[in-house]
Amino acid sequence: MENKAKIDPKRFEIIRAYQKGEKIPGITAKFSHISKATIYRWINEFKKGRVCRKTRKPTEEKKAFYKTAMNLYRQGLSIPEIQREIKLVSSTTIRRWIMSS
């Protein structure tokens, strides 16, 4: 659930090219600075439904956890106290939510 890796812009371009119907040999020629094995792996991961973090949309459950965490934080609870209340969310995630709000 907590994949912190950011998507490489080149990976995004390659997946986008594949989605637009470009053939894999054409993609590997266009992105010759990236190994063919890497391009094939990225496309295979995409085919299997593994989408990158930036394209995932938060689930309703996660939205509810976020709202609850922010309400508890505004009430003065500390991050460990919030994490004990919402057991399915890590303290790191709660901290990131607070810092981004």
Rank of each mutant, 00 (worst) to 15 (best):
E2I: 06
E2V: 07
K4W: 06
K4F: 07
A5E: 08
A5S: 08
I7Y: 05
I7V: 14
K10W: 06
R11C: 11
R11K: 15
R11N: 01
F12E: 14
E13Y: 08
E13K: 15
I14S: 06
I15K: 04
G21D: 03
I24G: 04
I24S: 07
G26Y: 03
I27E: 04
K30Q: 14
F31D: 02
F31L: 11
F31G: 04
F31I: 11
I34R: 05
I34N: 00
A37T: 13
R41V: 02
R41T: 12
I43H: 07
N44H: 10
N44L: 07
N44C: 10
E45W: 00
E45N: 15
K47W: 05
K47L: 09
K48H: 07
R50L: 15
R50I: 15
V51G: 00
C52E: 08
K54M: 06
R56E: 07
E60K: 15
E61W: 05
K62H: 01
A64P: 03
A64M: 09
F65E: 01
Y66G: 00
Y66S: 01
K67W: 00
K67I: 03
A69K: 04
A69T: 03
N71K: 14
N71G: 04
L72P: 02
L72T: 03
G76M: 04
S78G: 09
I79C: 08
P80L: 10
P80Q: 10
P80M: 12
I82D: 04
E85S: 12
I86N: 00
S91F: 06
S91I: 07
T92C: 08
T93G: 09
T93A: 15
T93P: 02
I94N: 00
I94Y: 05
R96Y: 10
S100Q: 13
S101A: 13
